[in-house]
Design a protein around this nucleic acid. Structure first.
Length: 351
DNA sequence: GTGAATACCCGCATTACCTCA
DNA sequence: GGTGAGGTAATGCGGGTATTC
């Protein structure tokens, strides 16, 4: 088992987004990143190359996050292939997805099970709404009706935030009219809405304003709801990752504890052997070197000198084999154990 | 060029609601 | 039917960054 800690490798910020996790048979298939030099928006930085007209948004979003990168594939074990997902679900911000011709209102097509009153082709309307807060095309949408009433009448230059807040307020107002209550009603997203959001989350763990608006229109939700869903989704992912991290570290700790116990026992045996066989003291200085990668121990001096001693004393065989055979490996300059010190100490104690 | 004000977004903690055993 | 647990949408707050003045 190898424990690999990635200390801020910005070249591979989000491996799971590549959807090709390469896991060895022995490792646990988990890589913990501790770097803070990159953010989860790196994928969007990549995307920004395709969206030159959103440089401003991308600049705003290209920030350094203090959080470690979450690198956990929480997606289903057999994720839908990207091409398949794209053919099933239409992501308005992807032009190639837009090119996928799905019959409008098709029960199998994108947005299936969603508000059938929604008019297809809301993407253009979304872009217009983002740019100029223009009235939306859905006659049944409270959002559009509000924007008809308030968005345009704003007169001055209204920010997107204002627009969304007003939209939210309008929707709340509309729901209040329905519910006659001031307490917040908790919306339960439908399965199709959740699935659609999940698919888009696979594509982008964060949204730019355009994506958010398009998604909101596609799902007949408020942009704020889409934003909140993504925030909560990221939080859930991070929580799951933390749980996986804890579990993994726990297992590492147990493994290391066992290894430590075994080495202590081995050391005790060697010491006992040393005291029971005084000729052991004639052995030359032996340096044990542990290779940190393979956890094997090599006896550099002993490997040469003890071979010379083979003819001198056959009684050393057991000791020599204990020193050389079981864990011999190439020399590696770490964790050197100088047995000579212990031998000298034993000599002194015996005298 | 610099700093304050503002907008926007995010993470995080928490609340509130809903479902289910 | 009442209840507690778990899931999750929603809220509030503080912080970081970019833009504007």
């Amino acid at each position: 088992m190898e424990l690999a800690l990635s200390l801020g490798d910005a070249s591979k910020p989000f491996l799971f987004l590549d959807k090709a996790p390469k896991m060895g048979s022995k490792d646990l298939g988990f890589c913990m990143g501790l770097g803070g030099a990159f953010s989860a928006r790196s994928d969007e930085s990549r995307e920004s190359t395709h969206e030159g007209d959103h440089d401003q948004d991308e600049r705003r979003r290209r920030r350094v996050s203090s959080d470690p990168p979450v690198q956990l594939n929480l997606l289903p074990s057999a994720p839908v292939p990207r091409s398949h997902a794209s053919s099933q679900l239409r992501f308005p911000w992807l032009t190639d997805n837009l090119a996928v011709s799905e019959p409008a209102g098709s029960s199998d097509g994108p947005g299936r099970g969603l508000d059938v009153n929604r008019m297809p082709g809301m993407v253009a309307a979304a872009e217009e709404a983002e740019d100029a807060a223009a009235p939306l095309s859905s006659p049944n949408s409270t959002v559009s009706s509000f924007q008809m009433d308030f968005g345009v009448g704003n007169g001055g230059r209204s920010s997107k935030r204002d627009l969304e807040l007003e939209t939210d307020r309008a929707s709340s107002r509309a729901s209040d009219d329905e519910d006659n209550g001031s307490t917040r009603k908790k919306l339960r997203l439908s399965k199709d809405q959740s699935a659609f959001l999940e698919e888009s989350f696979k594509e982008h763990s964060t949204l730019n304003p355009k994506q958010k608006l398009a998604l909101a229109k596609q799902l007949n939700l408020r942009p704020r709801q889409v934003e909140v869903w993504f925030q909560n989704r990221r939080a859930r992912t991070k929580l799951k990752q933390t749980e996986v991290d804890c579990e993994y570290l726990k297992r590492c700790c147990e493994t290391l504890t066992d290894e430590n116990r075994r080495l202590q026992k081995e050391l005790q045996e060697l010491r006992a052997l040393k005291t029971s066989q005084p000729f052991y003291m004639q052995l030359p200085a032996t340096t044990l070197t542990m290779c940190p990668s393979c956890e094997r121990v090599v006896s550099t001096a002993a490997a040469n000198t003890t071979n010379n001693n083979n003819n001198n004393n056959s009684n050393n065989n057991s000791l020599k084999s204990a020193l050389t055979k079981p864990r011999l490996h190439h020399p590696f300059a770490q964790a050197q154990v100088h047995m000579q010190h212990q031998v000298q100490a034993s000599k002194g104690a015996a005298a």
